[in-house]
């Protein structure tokens, strides 16, 4: 069984909301990144969204742009990202992993080979940010053949008719983008997200994760009120940026992330 399916059915059983964490692979360095991600499960993270760094991340705000350049300065390749996941699996860390990427590195790697290698190295799902459903036909077929989940985005500007089409080719979960805009920490939570989640639920029973701009414990608690999982990205990546060079960066991150995931336990009570 795919780790994502397993995770969401467990979460449903204990009626708890999921916590998804985005980190850029190889940030601030591959060894530090490995130390950080290997402690995530214990810090309460349910799903790891691992970003492949890209030279032109046009849907990302400054925080993730900087993380991408830090990682690329060390020449992180797609292969290195797969190796990181493989290393987790070798250590018996079974956290579900979703690869978050722009299309060009996948195209260059070869979509077929990319999907096979995902399956081989223990990746559970893929989200390609700039591959809209219209262009995704072959990739969806390849991925489903290897039991790799295909996650797509639904945004505030997605018309209802498209929502219907997008959920049809989505597997694993549906990613609801809470606001128009690029990734990045925000002061306030988007007011539009609850309505979009509702729209999505009309057409699918898949779990719905909400992301973009969720940055504080309060945001996490609030967003968890209307979806199945919350995604935190830039806020955590910023925390890495602020602690580069510290020996205990994995400990600092683990404690910080626990302070966010703790909120989800509070929701059920």
């Amino acid at each position: 069984m795919n780790r994502l399916d397993k995770k969401f059915s467990e979460l449903r059983m204990i009626s708890r909301k999921g916590f998804v964490l985005y980190l850029t692979a190889g940030d601030p360095s591959m060894p530090d990144c490995f130390r950080i991600v290997s402690r995530l499960e214990k810090a309460g993270v349910d799903i790891l969204e691992l970003g492949i760094p890209f030279s032109d991340p046009l849907a990302d705000g400054p925080t993730i742009q900087k993380a991408s350049s830090r990682s690329l300065k060390q020449h992180t390749s797609v292969q290195d990202v797969f190796n990181l996941v493989k290393k987790l699996r070798n250590e018996k860390i079974e956290i579900p992993v979703v690869i978050f990427t722009y299309y060009n590195p996948v195209l260059k790697y070869g979509p077929d080979r990319f999907v096979s290698d995902c399956a081989d190295r223990g990746v559970d799902g893929v989200l390609i940010l700039d591959l809209p459903p219209e262009e995704a036909g072959d990739y969806v077929v390849m991925a489903s053949g290897k039991n790799i989940k295909t996650i797509f985005l639904i945004t505030p500007t997605t018309p209802e008719k498209r929502v219907k089409d997008i959920v049809k080719i989505s597997t694993g979960f549906v990613y609801c983008v809470s606001r128009t805009g690029v990734t990045g920490a925000r002061k306030n939570l988007s007011g539009e997200a609850p309505a979009i989640v509702k729209k999505i639920r009309k057409y699918t029973d898949l779990p719905v994760a909400v992301g973009f701009g969720i940055s504080t414990p309060e945001h996490v608690r609030k967003a968890a009120g209307y979806c199945d999982a919350v995604v935190v990205g830039s806020a955590a990546v910023k925390k890495i940026e602020d602690n580069i060079g510290k020996k205990d960066i994995d400990g600092i991150m683990a404690r910080y992330i626990s302070s966010l995931t703790r909120e989800l336990k509070a929701v059920e009570k």
């Binding site: 849907a59 299309y103 591959l131 809209p132 639904i154 945004t155």
Partner: peptide, 21 residues
């Protein structure tokens, strides 16, 4: 229909822009 000139072109953008296009 998909905006392709043979195998080139298309709309490889984040979902937020699809409707505007």
């Amino acid at each position: 229909k998909k905006g392709m000139f043979g195998k080139f072109g298309g709309k490889f953008v984040p979902e937020t822009l699809m409707n505007a296009l």
